[in-house]
């Protein structure tokens, strides 16, 4: 047999070997791009606050910039925190004293609107995502500019607006206040497996009860109401402090993985 033929046969044999290897090989690197859905709504208080006040909301508005689901475990949670290493990982240094590291982002979306938490549930669809186990979420709350605030009762330049009635032992206070602060809510527990099939859905409930859970409305007793009978909460008072702490606390945003359809 000539050299040329031997060489040709060798190439055919090698092609066979390669096909064999191909069929024995792994399928992929794992994971996939996908999308998720999320619903956002306000959860009104179901009982009195820890200070004993029954709060009825008339308005609750929140200016949301963005939502993000992360691999990183929240801090101060009664479960084992896991390592964050993945194939591609954004390393984050530990910080004192709470060691929240967001780790890789699995999904995020720009909301860029004022949410009426007393209104119907807001649906966010086709949120860009990749598969993986989400453990925490970050919410970015920013003051609304005039365009974003248009059509809502939130004043431009503010992030949060609440108005309602608080009652306790015969005392009733109508109140309202707005916060102009920017809030980065980080490390909110958001556990759930983001699946590849695009049906993963999270429900985000803003716990309005927790927002004012520590408010002592009796501190407003000496504040004269406005013409419409509503007390504008003073800037340096305990109630505003309570709302600020309530809004900034990540546990006020309950992120729940909804069961897959059909389950």
């Amino acid at each position: 047999m000539s050299d040329k033929r031997w060489v040709s046969w060798s190439m055919v044999a090698s092609a066979f070997a390669m096909v064999t290897v191909f069929h024995c090989g792994p399928v992929s690197t794992g994971g996939a791009r996908t999308s998720i859905q999320a619903s956002l709504r306000g959860a009104t208080p179901t009982g009195p606050t820890s200070a004993g006040w029954s709060v009825t909301y008339e308005q609750a508005l929140l200016s949301v910039d963005s939502l993000r689901w992360n691999v990183g475990e929240p801090v101060f949670e009664a479960r084992l925190r896991q390592r964050l290493f993945r194939a591609i990982s954004i390393g984050t240094a530990f910080a004192h004293p709470g060691h929240y590291s967001p780790g890789d982002a699995l999904a995020d979306t720009s909301v860029l609107r004022v949410l009426d938490l007393m209104g119907p549930t807001v649906q966010l669809t086709s949120i860009t995502a990749v598969t993986g186990t989400s453990n925490s979420a970050t919410l970015t709350l920013r003051p609304a500019d005039a365009a974003r605030a248009a059509g809502t009762t939130l004043s431009a330049g503010n992030t949060v607006r609440v108005q309602g009635t608080a009652a306790k032992a015969g005392a009733t206070v109508r109140f309202r206040m707005e916060l102009a602060d920017a809030f980065d809510i980080a490390g909110t527990p958001a556990h759930g497996e983001i699946r590849a099939d695009g049906t993963t859905s999270f429900a985000i409930a803003v716990d309005l009860g927790l927002w004012l859970d520590r408010a002592d409305f009796s501190t407003l007793a000496m504040v004269a109401p406005a013409m419409d009978g509503v007390v504008d909460v003073p800037a340096d008072g305990q109630v505003r402090n309570a709302l600020f702490r309530g809004v900034s606390n990540g546990s006020a945003y309950r992120v729940t993985l909804l069961p897959a359809s059909g389950q």
């Binding site: 101060f76 925490s136 490390g187 408010a215 606390n249 546990s251």
Partner: peptide, 18 residues
């Protein structure tokens, strides 16, 4: 905590720290 300045004793996402 609500009697303390808002910039102090922040709680992050910890629950029931009042």
């Amino acid at each position: 905590l609500t009697t303390l300045p808002t910039g102090q004793y922040t709680t992050g996402s910890a629950r029931n720290v009042n």
